[in-house]
C-alpha cells in the first residue's frame, strides 16, 4: 500500500476511483490524495444515499 512513496516528490500519484475507475485528484470521501480505497464524488454519493454535500468552501 505504500509503494508509491518513492515517486511522491513532484509527481502526482494516480488515484483511481474504486467504484468506477475514474481518475481522481483526491478521495471524495476523506479528501486524501493517497487513500487506499478512494472513491469519486458520484460513487461516494451513491454509496451513502445521495446525501453528501458538494464542497463549496470558496464563497467567491
Amino acid at each position: 500500500m505504500t509503494g508509491q512513496q518513492d515517486a511522491e516528490a513532484g509527481s502526482t500519484v494516480a488515484l483511481v476511483c474504486a467504484g468506477c475507475d475514474r481518475s481522481l485528484e483526491d478521495c471524495a470521501f476523506c479528501d486524501e490524495v493517497d487513500c487506499g480505497c478512494a472513491v469519486c464524488y458520484r460513487c461516494c454519493r451513491a454509496a451513502i444515499g445521495e446525501s453528501m454535500d458538494p464542497v463549496h468552501a470558496h464563497g467567491g
Binding site: 479528501d31 454509496a47 451513502i48 453528501m52 454535500d53 464542497v55 463549496h56 470558496h58
Partner: peptide
Amino acid sequence: MRPGPSTFRPNVPIEEMAGFMGEHQL
C-alpha cells in the same frame, strides 16, 4: 486549515458513515 473538506448531510445513515469512516481511516 484543510480548506473545503468533504461534508455530509445529517440524514446519512450512521452505519454507512461508520463503515466509510473505518474504511477510509477518517
